[in-house]
Design a binder for these strands. Sequence first.
DNA 1: CGGTAAGTTGAAGTCGACTTCAGGTCGAGG
DNA 2: CCTCGACCTGAAGTCGACTTCAACTTACCG
Lengths: 134, 134
Amino acid sequence: MRYYEREGLISAVRSPGGQRRYPRGVLRRLAFVRTAQNVGLSLGEIRTALATLPEARTPTKADWARLPGSWRSRLDEQINGLIALRDGLSSCIGCGCLSLRRCALSNPDDVVGAAGPGPRFLPPTLRRTPETVR
Amino acid sequence: MRYYEREGLISAVRSPGGQRRYPRGVLRRLAFVRTAQNVGLSLGEIRTALATLPEARTPTKADWARLPGSWRSRLDEQINGLIALRDGLSSCIGCGCLSLRRCALSNPDDVVGAAGPGPRFLPPTLRRTPETVR
DNA sequence: CGGTAAGTTGAAGTCGACTTCAGGTCGAGG
DNA sequence: CCTCGACCTGAAGTCGACTTCAACTTACCG
């Protein structure tokens, strides 16, 4: 929790002696963080989402609705991905079509876009002849 | 891919000169790895799952069915978690009930069980008086 | 009021998952 | 045949997400 506090995900009230006291709202946020993490979101993403939620009160349906659309679609993607994975990736790997290019699952939003670290598939412009699978 | 190879997730055929050649099957496995990763599984879990799939041929429905039950239920949990998160955690945080103890989502399978690193909620036996929320 | 478990701090360590580097080798096009 | 870009290897570096440590301070219980 100290770590999350340093990372700006939660905050803590201090006792006179300087010890942390966690009011209900913080525990609620904490539960949110852990839950979101359990399903594979990074602390950065979670922080962004938390920023749109009120710190003071229990989030209402309206508060949740205010979460950026990207968050929602990200979750939708994730959900669909898991379902496909569970059902044997029938639409993707299971079919043997080797549809790396077509499969939205393998490479959801970024499509190589926005540089930065991390492996990626080659964009079409850089790709070799299709038959040279190597 | 070299990293995945070292980690035993994929293998590679070598050209006479020692360069890696990746037959279709490997690309398929690779796609599986990335997809599973995208939805939040660790390389270890993926390796375990891959171990049950045939390396030589395109996995069939029967092959997928052979994946350990734990894998499937793990995915189900994950899926339910995401759906709850997307729908505003109506069953959990959104309700304001602070149901850390009851909420299956917050602490899926392990329930503090199996020691090892990582934060956890206190088991009832170790918990302080319930009104002392701190 | 005193003892001891629990909390405080900053810094350093760990672990998974990669990426980067340096120095050398392979291999397709001209 | 030569060349130049792509690939090879092992080692080291990076990044996110924590955990562990050491030295010290609080705070509840008897």
